[in-house]
Amino acid sequence: MAKSAVKFRDTVAEYERISAQIAARKFAPVYLLMGEEGYFIDALAEQLASTILDEAARAFNQITVYGRDTEAGQVINLCRQMPMMGSYQVVIVKEAQQLRGIEKLSYYTQKPSATTILVICHKEKSVDRRSAFYKGCAANGTVFESVRPRDYEIASWLQQFIKGQGLAIDTKALSMLTDHLGTDIAKIANELRKLTVSLPEGTRRITDADVEAHIGISKDFNNFELCKAVVTKDMNRALMIADHFACNPKDNPLLLTIMALFGQFRDLFVVNYLRWLTRHKGKPFPSDQELMRILRKSNTFILGEIKQQASLWDNRKVFAVLGLLREYDAKSKGLNAGGAPDGELLRELLLKIFLL
């Protein structure tokens, strides 16, 4: 099956569109919610389950089945039943990727019942677009594909997610969350829910102290502070943070640290290259707005720091650092690491960077 052309930004936009339609009670007869990122699939399924029918009607007209425990024929029979004392019945199929004979659902999706709303939650992968099942869902219902974000896409999504809850977040607090929690949106959303519930009444801005207090990420010993120490060439501070990481390896995976450092030096490389083009080729240096687009940043303060830090590194050294990061990325995955623990590998990597 060909790789999907859907991007994370497409997923977010389509999620918001479908969510708004559900809130306005504009329902499709079939919803195929599919893809690798389960957070949006679960959110839409939950919204449908709590919106289509009122609480009393759900007891009679809402059925949830699981793919591993049923087969396509049983789902079709459920969908063809008439609702009891209401306009609709709702059939929700969870873990549909495990449904036996899922392709047979095409017999139903090609001509769905007007009194049934079928919600198919197909996680882990997408349905083959060439299949009759997919084509039936696309022609007669709503298809939603949920793709996972890249590391550089998380921060902007998280800012908007927090804004949607009537809050703002400081730059450092945002970096602490994205560096520590990675790209697992469900995990991020869950941690944020715990954090927002714990915030004092009237709080409108999340700070690094809030993240430390309610999520348990140190505001002094984290990837944001480590990256800052490295690019500003503060070796003592960087090694102190590395020693803290070595004492808490489960909370500070080496792979995430390497990803954070790689992103930081990649940005420095791009800025220095653009400056070289300006000096040697006469090309105008991009405006802040254009540079933010190139670097995929959403904050002018961060942009100012990157430009300042880039002046401390020439691109020959930046290129060498990127090479070291690739080498230690492989070592973090067990290749030629010699059995060294993550803490030792990180300290070794930092010393090599500072000795360049």
Results as ranks from 00 to 15, higher is better:
Ile294Ala: 02
Lys3Val: 12
Tyr273Trp: 11
Ala45Phe: 07
Val318Gln: 07
Pro200His: 04
Pro249Asn: 11
Lys125Val: 00
Lys281Leu: 09
Lys283Gln: 14
Tyr273Lys: 12
Pro83Ile: 02
Asp210Thr: 01
Ala330Gln: 14
Ala96Lys: 04
Thr142Lys: 12
Leu325Ile: 08
Ile41Asp: 03
Asn222Glu: 08
Thr64Arg: 06
Ala260Asn: 07
Asn315His: 12
Thr203Gly: 03
Gly73Met: 01
Ala56Leu: 10
Ala260Lys: 07
Arg58Gly: 03
Gly334Ser: 10
Gly339Leu: 04
Ala132Cys: 00
Phe221Leu: 10
Val6Arg: 14
Lys333Glu: 07
Ser332Trp: 02
Glu212Tyr: 03
Tyr328His: 08
Gly216Met: 08
Glu36Ser: 06
Leu181Cys: 13
Leu167Gly: 06
Phe221Ile: 06
Trp276Ala: 12
Thr278Pro: 02
Val143His: 05
Arg150Asp: 13
Pro149Gly: 01
Lys281Pro: 02
Leu335His: 12
Ile162Asn: 06
Ile63Gly: 00
Ala320Val: 00
Leu255Val: 13
Met34Ser: 13
Lys233Tyr: 01
Ala213Asp: 08
Val12Tyr: 05
Asn315Ile: 04
Leu53Lys: 09
Tyr88His: 15
Val91Met: 03
Lys233Cys: 00
Lys123Arg: 13
Gln160Phe: 07
Pro149Glu: 02
Ile206Pro: 11
Ser50Met: 10
Asn190Pro: 06
Leu158Gln: 07
Thr70Gly: 00
Ala49Lys: 12
Gln98Lys: 15
Asp267Gln: 14
Asp151Met: 13
Ser156Tyr: 11
Leu199Ser: 04
Arg148Val: 11
Lys111Ser: 15
Glu327Phe: 07
Asn190Arg: 14
Ile306Ala: 05
Phe8Thr: 06
